[in-house]
């Protein structure tokens, strides 16, 4: 099932799972959340190939490696075969150029732009946990499949790997340690899965989702 929110076509968790088998290219915003979830190894195991990370993202994450994760470094993930660092070809570079040159409101930083550019020229989904990038993808690249860390965590294949409690724990860690962003269509479901007590502790969830859930309970 696909829904449209503010121009962005969301790929929902109940979609055809064959699509996810295409693999993902992840932006820094998502890599941080995947690692924070503590479940990156198991999540990657349900994907058909290592998680691709473009060089610009790798460089950014490496430069902030002392703080972006508490448990793993990019090089360790690459060495374990969980991620693969990739470069843009000429066609992807043309998309990249269009995404970094222009007004601030209509451009993205290099890592975000390169991730989208790579996804556009490969058979991969763009794994991004960033609101402006979601908007730009929705407005400019209608055919591009964009997924999120939340979506990966809620995927039945991931749940089969982690178990229901494992999914809740991974979600909670991604939200509390990584301050993961959750797309609006999935907010209610995430809060329901977490439970009101845990949701209230996740400050990256919008206030209405946290407070609202506590009031309802």
């Amino acid at each position: 099932m696909r829904t449209t929110v503010k121009g962005l076509r969301w790929t929902m968790a109940s979609r055809d799972r064959a699509e996810l088998r295409r693999g993902v290219v992840a932006d820094a915003s998502a890599v941080i959340n995947l690692v924070a979830s503590g479940a990156v190894l198991k999540i990657s195991s349900v994907l058909p190939a290592p998680i691709r990370v473009v060089t610009a993202v790798a460089l950014e994450l490496e430069s902030g490696r002392s703080r972006w994760t508490t448990s793993a470094h990019l090089a360790d993930l690459a060495a374990a075969g969980i991620i693969e660092i990739v470069d843009l070809d000429d066609e992807a570079l043309r998309h990249f150029e269009a995404l970094v040159i222009g007004t601030a409101a209509e451009t993205l930083d290099d890592g975000e732009a390169a991730t989208i550019a790579y996804a556009l020229t490969s058979d991969l989904e763009a794994l991004i946990d960033e609101r402006k990038a979601w908007r730009i993808c929705g407005e400019r690249y209608a055919a591009l499949a964009v997924t999120t860390t939340v979506e990966l965590l809620l995927d039945p294949a991931t749940e089969a790997e982690l178990g229901p409690d494992g999914v809740v724990d991974a979600l909670f860690r991604a939200l509390s340690c990584g301050r993961m962003r959750v797309p609006p269509p999935q907010l209610e479901r995430v809060v329901r899965i977490l439970g009101t007590e845990r949701a209230a502790l996740c400050h990256s969830l919008p206030i209405h989702a946290r407070i609202g859930s506590a009031r309802r309970s």
């Binding site: 915003s29 601030a104 409101a105 993205l108 975000e112 402006k132």
Partner: peptide, 11 residues
């Protein structure tokens, strides 16, 4: 307002 992305703001 969605004027700058996370990557742009962090930089």
């Amino acid at each position: 307002r969605g004027l700058l992305s996370e990557g742009q703001l962090a930089r």
